[in-house]
């Protein structure tokens, strides 16, 4: 791991970092002086755990946005590599492009072959530039659709991992029909006769997230966010002031508990203490277990039932007054 990734500390994590440093100092001093401080240290470690618990159990929406975007947060390929027995990445939309911001391929998960798709953020600046910060282009959505059609033909369940600030806002993306590419995916994902599980692992940015976000089960990590617009964008438009992002984050109801309450997601995946970046191994374990549980349940349904239930699920979304 390079220093750039290690250096990232969110402001509300700072008390934890300071405490950690103090514990190290005491340990070192004890070693030098030969005095037994194990009681004192274990007490401090306890305090540390308690503080971490406190901080992460009452994160504000704005703080959750920061956690969801944490540069050390596990990415799609991190999870794939850690939880699958086999992984073969596939490339290309067969229309002239291969988008590195949206990856896909076959995997074996708990012994079963599946198709996994996901937005891919970079794990350092250089990779982020190469991967457009996980912002997919039309070619990415079309590659995803090609692979999903393939999964449908061969009866492979589909897993999508969502982690994007949004679809790529560029001239080339517009020229190639960003809106059309996403729209077609939304429609076609209702016509796939295989189980689809979508998981928001980090940042669920608007239409760019939804473009691979239609499924039978929608899961979300505890500190992930899913929003119609970025808090900064919303603040700039509605408050005419992008520094009001904290207010926008609050108002948009973009956290996992909010979305569960609104009936827009099915399940929240608890994160390890200190969030997924603090313990990627445990986060991977949680994800894998949730995927296998849900797959087992969905496998019992035939294709027609899956598609009907998927339609009905999204059909219910929305709140209106009638009459």
């Amino acid at each position: 791991m390079n220093s750039e990734r290690k250096a990232v500390i969110l402001d509300f994590e700072r008390p934890l970092v300071e405490m950690e440093q103090r514990i190290r100092q005491i340990e070192q001093m004890a070693q030098e002086s030969g005095v037994d401080v194990s009681d004192r240290v274990s007490q401090l470690v306890n305090n540390y755990r308690q503080l971490r618990q406190e901080i992460f159990s009452r994160l504000t929406p704005e703080q959750r946005v920061k956690v969801a975007r944490h540069p050390r947060r596990p990415t799609t390929l991190d999870y794939i590599q850690a939880m699958t027995d086999e992984w073969l990445e596939l490339h290309g939309d067969r229309g002239g492009s291969d988008d590195p911001a949206l990856v896909g391929g076959f995997a074996r998960l708990g012994g079963q072959p599946v198709l996994i798709l996901g937005h891919q953020k970079g794990r350092d600046t250089k990779e982020n530039v190469a991967r457009n910060f996980g912002m997919a282009s039309p070619g990415g959505y079309r590659k995803a659709l090609r692979l999903m059609h393939h999964a449908h033909r061969f009866g492979l369940p589909i897993i999508t991992l969502i982690d994007t600030p949004g679809a790529y806002p560029g001239v080339e993306a517009e020229r190639l029909g960003q809106g059309e590419a996403i729209a077609v995916n939304l429609q076609e994902m209702f016509a796939l006769a295989v189980p689809i599980i979508c998981v928001v692992i980090g940042e669920g940015g608007s239409g760019g997230a939804l473009g691979i976000g239609v499924g039978d089960r929608i899961l979300m990590f505890e500190h992930a966010i899913y929003s119609v617009i970025s808090p900064e964008g919303c603040a700039a438009i509605l408050w005419k002031d992008s520094t009001q992002a904290a207010k926008a984050a609050q108002a948009l109801k973009l956290t996992a508990p909010d979305l569960l309450e609104l009936g827009l997601i099915d399940q929240i995946l608890p994160e390890p203490l200190g969030a997924a970046h603090a313990d990627p191994v445990q986060a991977t374990e949680t994800l894998k277990r949730a995927l296998l549980d849900n797959l087992a349940r969905l496998r019992e349904l035939d294709g027609a039932t899956l598609m009907r239930q998927r339609y009905d699920k999204f059909r219910r979304m929305g709140v209106v007054l009638d009459g």
Binding site: L238, L254, R310, M317
Partner: peptide
């Protein structure tokens, strides 16, 4: 575009309308 004041409920209307048009198309 989507109405920000209804948050994710607005975003999901994109999928809902696309689904209904899919059945019409079929």
């Amino acid at each position: 575009g989507a109405r920000m004041q209804e948050g994710m409920l607005s975003l999901m209307q994109m999928a809902k309308t696309a689904a209904a048009l899919g059945r019409h198309r079929q």
